[in-house]
Deep mutational scan, measured.
Amino acid sequence: MTEYKLVVVGAGGVGKSALTIQLIQNHFVDEYDPTIEDSYRKQVVIDGETCLLDILDTAGQEEYSAMRDQYMRTGEGFLCVFAINNTKSFEDIHHYREQIKRVKDSEDVPMVLVGNKCDLPSRTVDTKQAQDLARSYGIPFIETSAKTRQGVDDAFYTLVREIRKHKEKMSKDGKKKKKKSKTKCVIM
């Protein structure tokens, strides 16, 4: 069974824990209790493949930012979460993405942009803004509501699919490099 290491990042209060708990335990946590770091595991079937999701729910508070490099190193894919009623959390996505790329030393890291709290009427981040940002990053965008469960499975499952595509691409690139290195030079 394939294991996928997913990391949920975003500013404090955007609903990272609520999304994760909704996926794992099928219930909505409405009281806000700032996370330092929590880890969850769940076995699911995605596109006919049974897999184990190892999900790291991270601290959004700035005082825990020193811990970010460590979990970013171990993560295979990242859910970059903002709240649709919090423009600052949307603007912060850029910083999370840049930090992930720096730590992973790669421009090509599996990510999904997630606009959470889409059940709320007080939207300050337009869907088109988020779609445009995701398009500019070359990553999928999904709106979710941890409260109603809308888009929750889709967000995590899409990230797994992005990781699969990335692994497939990397193995193809690896095979191309191996083929090239088999060419021999004969000096007579």
Rank of each mutant, 00 (worst) to 15 (best):
C51F: 08
E62G: 08
Q129S: 10
V29Q: 05
G151F: 07
Y96S: 05
E162D: 07
T158Y: 06
L6G: 02
T20Q: 02
A59T: 04
H166R: 05
K182L: 09
L79K: 02
Q25E: 01
A59Y: 01
E3V: 04
T183H: 07
K172L: 06
R97F: 15
H95L: 08
D154R: 05
I187R: 10
A134G: 12
I93V: 05
R135G: 11
A66I: 04
G174E: 13
D38W: 00
S106V: 12
L53A: 08
V8I: 13
E3G: 03
T58I: 03
D33I: 02
T127R: 05
I163Y: 01
D126Y: 07
H27Y: 15
S39C: 09
T158W: 13
K180E: 03
I84A: 13
V7A: 04
A83S: 15
V109S: 06
T144M: 04
S136H: 13
D69P: 03
L159D: 01
I93Y: 11
V9A: 05
T124Y: 07
K88V: 13
I93H: 01
L19W: 03
T35L: 00
K169E: 06
F156N: 03
P121L: 09
K167H: 07
V114Y: 04
M67W: 11
E76D: 15
D47K: 14
I36V: 07
H27A: 14
V44E: 11
F28S: 01
L6H: 01
S65W: 05
D126E: 06
Q129K: 14
A155V: 11
A18R: 01
V160T: 06
Y64M: 09
K177D: 10
T144H: 05
V14F: 14
V45W: 05
Y71E: 15
C118D: 10
T144S: 11
G15P: 04
V125H: 10
D132Q: 05
L6N: 02
K104C: 15
A66P: 08
Q129W: 11
D154L: 05
K184W: 01
K177G: 10
F141I: 04
E107N: 08
Q129M: 08
Y64P: 09
T20R: 00
R73C: 11
D69E: 11
C185M: 15
G13W: 12
T35S: 01
P34C: 02
A155I: 12
V125Q: 09
K169P: 15
F90V: 09
T183C: 04
